[in-house]
Design a protein around this nucleic acid. Structure first.
Length: 602
RNA sequence: CGGGAUGUAGCGCAGUAGGUAGCGUGCCUGCUUUGGGAGCAGGAUGUCGCAGGUUCGAUUCCUGUCAUCCCGACCA
């Protein structure tokens, strides 16, 4: 492609709309333009990148035995009502663009395709003989993100590869999952990215096992905890660890003490001159279920630990049936205003005890009249602990479960793992922290959707059994930007060769110089013939402009037909390292071809 | 949805005690220059987000509204 003929517009300054480096660079280098909030036009350069990523994804999916298809984006509400997700996806989480057509039919714009693919499977898969099966598509998804952010990182319209596997049983599902796990490693390796596969929370999709593929970058929205030995890595939402040992309590007898102005753990520990690990912290949460019921939850946890709200929400979801509900649609620490809605008297904030009386709750039709009392594992083992007294200004010391307080019936893992914790598999390994961009997520769904939509097959014994499913996503457009986030310098983007829009850019520094232009043309043609994807900067610009643009756009190799032409040589510069060398005119194409092949083989 | 901010030329920004707007960059033309976003000369470009109101007159003041961005709860 000749730059003189291409839609090629670079910006000299950072656009005001962009915050993180990759977003700024993609806009500045002319890869994309914002059309609306969270909605971008993919311009020719970016489209090439996206197609390259798609092609790598396609090759690896095909190699893993998956079959490509293309599913509908307009999805009838009936399917989503069957799976029970219509309500949660259009209201509670509100992530689906929903619309009504002129006949009054309700439709959703596909945020994901479990329902559609399961409907297809229900219609077409009859026998175990047709299994296993894995279907995938690469397509635009629509999600009404509450807050679109960071360009392609969190758009409302984005390209995703989603795959769905169908197996006869759990073992088969795990095999399919394993294949996808390997395929994802291959995809990311081939795209030239530094990444880590981590244990993940399966969130709204549901299911059992799940892993995320994180591209490591400072701007990542997720925190990853891992061990040096490579044995453990998890999203902080999911991570487990051994907390630090509790310091044995220095309080021997139970008594109430005056502790003025100690509403926080830190202030209390200082006042009593004890370790936060001796304190029992009681945190109040307010939960809203999709049945309309509100529930107040009191979580007791060791003072030095924090509650992991994702874990808490998962546990509360398991209990949804007790409240005639199927999902949690809200979880918050009630603020003063929320407390006023239900508290019969001011709460002893900062001084709450695990036995905070239910009489604090104003009876109401939509509010459960008792606190749900949960205790984290770390707090179960505490002896002679310090905790609130339900009276402002006073705590108790030397308290014990069973003596002063009944141990809550539900003892769960609700704590947030953090950097420096000891790993479960090997206490000598300490958790390290890194930030990551989630570009892939694989799930073992089990039969959640197949049961809901009645997608069954007949097994060898002639029985009708629900299909065992898995689902697997890769954010294709997000991956493109993540690659930039991971690889850039002060001059611009540094694309890995495998996904660069073009592999080489040929620059004639002086467009007025006939020899330079002729040499550039000749090399450009030879590169094309050799199957190298090349750009020719034949614009009537000065050398500086051309070099700056080439670096900003991030083409891996630059060939300059400049001064060295006198000696029959051209200069070849590697974008990533800025390393430059002079190569004979007649050898440059073969050399470049070799370099590219070596890069692509990695 | 809660909190904070911003809408003026393609992009980045200034400005108007109320009198229809400017800087940088980019764009167009010409000459010079030609290995790191050149120099000189000339030129084009705006419903001042939108709608009401006040006023002789509103981009400026008032009211409303829409959009966008940032910080929090959701996700490839």
């Amino acid at each position: 492609m000749r730059l003189s003929q291409m839609l090629f517009v670079t910006l000299r300054e950072d656009p005001a709309e962009a915050e993180i480096p990759s977003h700024k660079l993609l806009l500045r280098a002319g890869y994309m333009r914002r059309i609306g909030s969270g909605v971008y036009a993919y311009l020719p350069l970016l489209w090439r990148v996206l197609q390259k990523i798609s092609q790598i994804v396609r090759e690896e999916m095909n190699a893993a035995g998956a079959q490509e298809c293309l599913l509908n984006q307009l999805q009838p509400s009936e399917l989503w009502k069957e799976s029970g997700r219509w309500e949660t996806y259009t209201q509670a989480e509100g992530i689906m663009f929903a619309l009504t057509d002129r006949q009054g039919r309700e439709l959703g714009l596909g945020p994901t395709h479990e329902e559609v693919i399961t409907a297809v499977a229900r219609d077409m898969i009859r026998s175990y003989r047709q299994l296993p099966l894995n279907l995938y598509q690469i397509q635009t998804k629509f999600r009404d993100e509450i807050r679109p952010r960071f360009g392609l990182m969190r758009g409302r319209e984005f390209i995703m590869k989603d795959a769905y596997s169908f197996d006869v049983d759990e073992a088969g599902m795990k095999r399919s999952y394993g294949k996808m796990h390997d395929a994802y490693h291959n995809i990311l390796r081939r795209c030239g990215l530094a990444f880590r596969a981590v244990d993940a929370d399966s969130g709204a999709i549901g299911g059992s096992g799940s892993q995320e593929f994180m591209v490591l970058a400072e701007a990542g929205e997720d925190e990853v905890l891992y061990t040096e030995d490579g044995q453990y890595a998890a999203n902080v939402e999911k991570a487990v660890s051994r907390p630090a040992e509790a310091v044995p309590s220095s309080f021997k007898t139970y008594e109430k003490r005056e502790t003025p102005n100690t509403p926080t753990i830190a202030s209390l520990a200082k006042f009593l001159d004890c370790s936060p690990t001796q304190i029992l912290k009681n945190v109040l949460y307010q939960v809203t279920y999709n049945s309309g019921m509100e529930l107040l939850v009191l979580v007791s946890i060791r003072g030095d630990q924090d509650v992991n709200e994702v874990k808490l929400q998962n546990e509360l979801t398991k209990l949804a049936g007790d409240y005639k509900a199927t999902a949690v649609i809200g979880l918050k620490v009630p603020d003063a205003e929320a407390q006023q809605q239900w508290a019969t008297q001011p709460l002893p904030l900062g001084y709450i005890a695990p036995d905070l009386p239910d009489s604090y709750i104003q009876p109401s039709k939509t509010l459960v009249a008792q606190f749900l009392r949960l205790v984290d594992q770390t707090a179960v083992e505490l002896k002679n602990f310090v905790t609130g007294s339900n009276e402002s200004g006073f705590h108790v010391v030397g308290a014990n479960w069973g003596s002063q307080y009944p141990l809550p019936r539900l003892a769960l893992d609700l704590r947030k793992a953090s950097v420096g914790d000891r790993a479960l598999h090997d206490p000598s390994q300490l958790l390290q922290s890194a930030r990551g961009i989630e570009i892939g997520h694989i799930f073992q769904l089990g039969n959640k959707y197949s049961k809901a939509l009645n997608a069954t097959y007949t097994n060898e014994q002639g029985e009708e059994v629900p299909l065992m499913m898995g689902c697997y996503g890769v954010g294709v457009s997000r991956l493109a930007q993540a690659a930039v986030e991971q690889s850039y310098d002060k001059d611009g983007i540094i694309w890995p060769v495998a996904i660069a829009p073009y592999q080489v850019i040929v620059v004639a520094p002086n467009a007025a110089d006939q020899d330079q232009m002729a040499a550039a043309e000749q090399i450009y043609n030879a590169l094309n013939q050799a199957g190298v994807e090349a750009l020719l900067d034949d614009r009537e610009e000065r050398a500086g402009v051309k070099f700056k643009d080439a670096e900003l756009v991030g083409i891996p190799y630059r060939i300059v037909t400049g001064r060295s032409l006198q000696q029959g040589k051209v200069e070849v510069v590697t974008r990533a390292t800025k390393a430059s060398q002079e190569i004979q005119l007649d050898q440059v194409v073969a050399t470049i071809r070799q370099w590219i092949d070596a890069e692509l083989a990695q």
